[in-house]
Amino acid sequence: MPARKGKRTAGAPRRAAPRKAAVAVQPAARHRIQVTVNGRPYEAEVEARTLLVYFLRDMLGLTGTHVGCDTTSCGACTILLNGEPVKSCTMFAVQADGAEILTVEGLARDGELHPLQKAFWEEHGLQCGFCTPGMLMTAYAFLNENPRPSEEEIRVALSGNLCRCTGYMNIVKAVQRAAQEMAAR
């Protein structure tokens, strides 16, 4: 998969007057971090070894980001870190200090599904749903960078995300459909 640089897109949706959320502090926690997740700022103390994915899932309760392989292979844990897709199972929470994070929970805005979410639904781009959040986040970052991709480009872009159910055909179709809809807007 070629390295993608591109512009840093605003990863997190902006919302008016965000509130600070309190997070339970672990007794063994040693590092204080500040992150913005889906437009909402958080401050928390984490152990140095706490993985970003478990920070999101266990401490913030954002369980849409999944753990499938523990080795950066499957991409189920993909989130956007300052607009770039990152596999959060092999990154420490402390490394995300100061970052803006977007997770699958932040894709829909004001009760309206993102065109990618709609397209995955329309094109039957998911079955068990476990890889879906990671697929959506990778596709989201990709379409920001390449709004009119070819089928081949989509396949290459998604090659860091594994799906065991769909055989990818409908996922590729969904990304194409979302690209068309976003272009038409």
Binding site: L107, A108, L113, L126, G129, F130, T132, L136
Partner: peptide, 12 residues
């Protein structure tokens, strides 16, 4: 079932 999965609202 998709409506919950596409929003990260599945409960695994």
């Amino acid at each position: 079932e998709d409506i919950r999965f596409i929003q990260g609202r599945g409960r695994y």
